Amino acid sequence: MLEGKVKWFNSEKGFGFIEVEGQDDVFVHFSAIQGEGFKTLEEGQAVSFEIVEGNRGPQAANVTKEA
């Protein structure tokens, strides 16, 4: 699992990017966010995740919000 911070997330469109120190930003789709209820992320929020190869390159999977 990697750790990063949410760079930005558009809850209307359901996607955004996660910043990872020393690496390129990683695309995140709302469907990759773990948990119940409305799936969104806040700018600057700490998250842990895995990287998988998507249709358009690397993207986040199994995203969990850090306490």
Rank of each mutant, 00 (worst) to 15 (best):
R56G: 11
K39Y: 06
F17T: 03
T40D: 07
A67D: 08
E21V: 14
A60R: 01
T64E: 08
A46T: 14
N62R: 11
I18S: 00
V63S: 01
M1N: 11
A32C: 04
N10S: 13
F27P: 03
E53M: 13
F9E: 01
E12I: 10
Q45S: 10
E66G: 15
Q34P: 06
I33N: 01
S31F: 06
L2H: 12
S31E: 06
G4Q: 01
V20Q: 08
W8Y: 09
A61Y: 09
A32E: 09
Q23D: 09
E3D: 12
S48D: 05
A61S: 11
F30N: 06
H29K: 03
H29L: 07
K39A: 08
K65H: 09
E3R: 15
K5A: 04
R56N: 10
E21T: 15
A61D: 08
H29W: 05
F49L: 07
Q34G: 11
V47T: 03
G54M: 08
T40S: 12
F30Q: 08
E66C: 06
I33K: 01
R56C: 05
A61H: 12
E12P: 07
F49Y: 05
Q23A: 10
E36H: 10
E36L: 08
N55K: 12
G57H: 05
T40H: 13
G54V: 07
K65M: 12
N10L: 07
F17L: 07
G16N: 00
G44P: 02
L2D: 04
F27L: 04
E50T: 12
E42M: 11
V47K: 00
A60V: 03
G22T: 06
R56W: 14
Q59Y: 10
S31P: 05
G14D: 01
E50Y: 13
V20R: 12
V63E: 00
F27R: 02
G16I: 01
S48M: 11
V47E: 00
V26W: 03
D24M: 13
F49V: 03
K7F: 03
H29D: 03
Q23W: 12
F15K: 02
E12R: 15
E12H: 13
G54S: 12
Q59I: 11
K65Q: 11
A46Q: 13
E19W: 14
Q45A: 11
E12G: 09
L2Y: 13
G37I: 05
P58M: 10
Q59G: 04
N10T: 07
K7R: 12
F15N: 03
V63K: 00
G54C: 04
V28E: 00
I18L: 10
G16V: 01
G37Y: 06
P58G: 06
V28C: 04
L41N: 01
V63Y: 00
N10F: 07
V63C: 04
G37E: 09
G57F: 05
E21I: 15
P58E: 06
E21S: 15
S11R: 15
E66T: 15
T64G: 09
V26N: 01
K39P: 09
R56F: 15
F9R: 02
Q59D: 02
G4V: 01
V47P: 00
Q45D: 15
F38T: 08
V6M: 04
I51V: 13
L41R: 01
A61E: 08
M1S: 09
I33P: 01
M1T: 13
F30R: 14
A61Q: 11
G44E: 04
Q34R: 12
N55Y: 14
Q45T: 09
K7H: 08
D24Q: 14
R56D: 09
A67E: 10
T64A: 12
A60Q: 01
V47H: 00
R56S: 12
F30Y: 13
V63H: 00
Q23F: 12
E36N: 11
F17M: 07
G57S: 06
Q59E: 11
A60M: 01
E21F: 12
E53D: 14
S48Y: 11
S48N: 15
T40R: 11
L2I: 15
I51E: 03
G4R: 01
I18D: 00
K39S: 06
G22V: 04
L2P: 04
T40L: 08
F27W: 07
P58C: 04
I33M: 05
F49H: 01
G57W: 05
Q45I: 09
G35P: 03
Q23E: 10
P58L: 11
F49M: 05
S31M: 09
G16E: 00
K5P: 02
G57C: 04
V47N: 00
L41I: 07
E43P: 15
G44C: 04
N55A: 14
R56A: 14
K13I: 09
S31T: 15
F15S: 03
S11E: 11
E36K: 09
F9L: 03
L2K: 15
D24G: 14
V63T: 03
E3V: 15
E19I: 14
I18C: 02
I51M: 10
K65T: 10
F38E: 08
D25C: 05
S48L: 12
L2F: 13
E66I: 15
K7A: 05
E50N: 07
S48W: 13
A32L: 03
G14Q: 03
I33Y: 02
V20D: 02
E3L: 14
G35C: 05
G44M: 06
K7M: 03
G16S: 00
A60K: 01
E50V: 08
Q45L: 09
I51A: 04
G35Y: 07
F49R: 00
L41C: 03
E50K: 08
N10V: 06
E66P: 13
G22A: 09
A46I: 12
E53N: 12
E43D: 13
V26D: 00
E36F: 07
F9D: 00
F27T: 02
N10M: 07
